[in-house]
Design a protein around this nucleic acid. Structure first.
Lengths: 140, 140
DNA sequence: CTGGATGTAACATACATTGTTACAGGCAAG
DNA sequence: CTTGCCTGTAACAATGTATGTTACATCCAG
């Protein structure tokens, strides 16, 4: 797969906002977050936009604008972040429909669907075990 | 992620070869496999080539050439297939090094590395539970 | 030898990811 | 109610990956 870094970017941004807030800085701009992640501010706005739609962060407009946690870092798991930023499934099926004349071509998609579903759930269970607060603690 | 279908294609090919052998056809050409998967024969040769390097199938050249299982379908798990065909990790780190002046920028990569490793292992455990024989049985 | 099939290079196409610039729109502060 | 800063998003470029396709050298059972 062309592994992407969305989860990494989003978790980094969240953890940095959590640390800043603990230090008394309530609102961070996308520029400030981008400086820590070392990327373009638009990338951060896109990522935090996903997190906002998932209810994990809040945004404030106008002068003194910026981003803030919508929940305590203890109450945000990497699974929630994953769901917020990731669209594609882990494994894709055939791009073209397999040959339905063949028993395997007919049967394989539902069979693999079940296996992929179990694999996905076990991955998600694992991501659900770690919170942003855990990441922040281990970073320091 | 740009989810790819390599695991799907490889499992389909293997399962089809396993069924053909059960029906008495020892060697299958890439054309014959491609006909069931409904793709180009070169795609199949590339996929089966990966499986051959992993010791899961055998190839025969010359006249009457083709592919055959190197082990019983019961002894090939989807995890082995996954390892044979998949190169990229599940989650990528930052493409550019994060800002090391920032505590999060310094600490986040090893922390995420551990989390991603656990997620990967739990995914692999799940894939290890299903064999090609299981897939074949459920296809019929 | 010969014919059929593999192994692989080379190339085309489509699409995802990331980065970049530009700009309309929102809003707190004065 | 204007000003200035920042968000939200479109548009585009650059790069990389996945898949498909053609072509051809190589291999080997018969």
């Amino acid at each position: 797969m062309a592994a992407n870094s969305r989860l990494t970017i989003a978790v980094h941004a969240l953890t940095w906002i959590a640390l800043a807030q603990r230090r008394g800085q309530e609102w961070l701009t996308s520029e400030q977050v981008a400086a820590s992640v070392n990327t373009n501010a638009v990338i951060i706005r896109r990522s935090l936009g996903d997190l906002r739609r998932a209810g994990l962060v809040e945004v404030r407009h106008g002068a003194g604008a910026g981003w803030s946690m919508a929940r305590a870092p203890e109450d945000i798991t990497l699974l929630q972040v994953y769901d917020a930023v990731e669209r594609e499934p882990l494994f894709a099926m055939h791009r073209t429909e397999p040959n339905l004349e063949c028993p395997i071509g007919r049967g394989i998609r539902p069979v693999l669907g079940v296996v992929y579903e179990q694999a996905d759930q076990s991955l998600r269970r694992e991501l659900g075990r770690t919170s942003i607060a855990d990441v922040l603690r281990d970073c320091l």
